[in-house]
């Protein structure tokens, strides 16, 4: 094997954490009394990827993408910024599972994204550019310091391509937000967003209940039970005083 190939391989193996040990299977079904790949639960605590300035901007952004209303909290309370913070710190942020080898050439829309930037780099550069833009056009205020209408106006102009950033694709950043923020609102709370399953309660999604045999034939009747997360459900524990 060529040295270069070996080094590429070695890097790939180190970057992969589970289920990668080659085994010979003979006369038995491989089995261990534990899951091979249990879920990783996001823990509360300080920001892991965002700086404090970035986090302020992100909490403002997620609350405009999904604003609060009288019945359902917005993206900020739902933990969408925390979700994105943890995602960017992990394999998603570093593009770990994607094909990252060059050359990086710009192609047609049908050929898909070709950027050499990782998701983490995209957010880092775009958030810096966003605050720089706001400060230079909004009397020295950062994005988080603007009122909601002004924030919406900035976001709309990024979406339409009217506002461009120097060092990074502003529209590409907005596309990432439109994917990542709803993912935080609707994914299982173990990932850091959808706190108290607010996204699921809003639409009536029961989470991971996994068995609807008693309801499949009950046509046009709203499913009555509250949602359940991979981490269970607090009010399943009887709280009798």
């Amino acid at each position: 094997m060529q040295r270069r190939t070996f080094l590429t391989l070695a890097a790939w193996f180190v970057g992969t954490t589970s289920l990668t040990h080659a085994t010979v299977i003979h006369n038995h079904v491989p089995w261990a009394p534990r899951p091979n790949s249990p879920p990783e639960m996001v823990r509360p605590g300080p920001w892991q990827f965002f700086t404090l300035d970035e986090a302020r901007a992100m909490e403002a952004i997620v609350d405009r993408i999904i604003p609060p209303d009288p019945e359902t909290p917005g993206g900020k309370i739902a933990g969408c910024a925390v979700f994105i913070d943890r995602q960017l710190k992990g394999p998603y942020g570093s593009n770990q599972n994607l094909y990252t080898l060059g050359p990086h050439t710009h192609g047609t829309k049908e050929q898909g994204p070709q950027s050499a930037l990782t998701h983490a780099e995209l957010y880092r550069k775009a958030l810096a550019a966003l605050d720089k833009h706001c400060k230079s056009t909004q009397g020295g205020k950062s994005f988080a310091e603007l009122d909601a209408d002004a924030q919406d106006d900035v976001l709309r102009k990024i979406e339409s391509g009217e506002i461009k950033f120097e060092a990074v694709d502003a529209k590409g950043f907005f596309s990432a937000l439109l994917k990542d923020v709803p993912e935080g609102f609707f994914s299982d709370p173990i990932h850091g967003g959808n706190i108290d399953m607010v996204g699921w309660k809003m639409i009536g999604f029961p989470g991971i209940r996994y068995d609807y045999r008693d309801w499949v034939g009950r046509h046009n009747e709203r499913y009555p039970h509250p949602p359940v997360s991979i981490a269970g459900r607090a009010d399943w524990t009887p709280a009798k005083s």
Partner: peptide
């Protein structure tokens, strides 16, 4: 039982969005 038990198989982010059971383009 070891790879996608009911306790965590229903993770939309992990399996549908991040494609954990599929080949990685890497």
């Amino acid at each position: 039982a070891t790879d996608y038990p009911p306790g965590y198989a229903a993770d939309e982010l992990r399996y549908r969005i991040r494609h954990e059971l599929f080949l990685s383009p890497s």
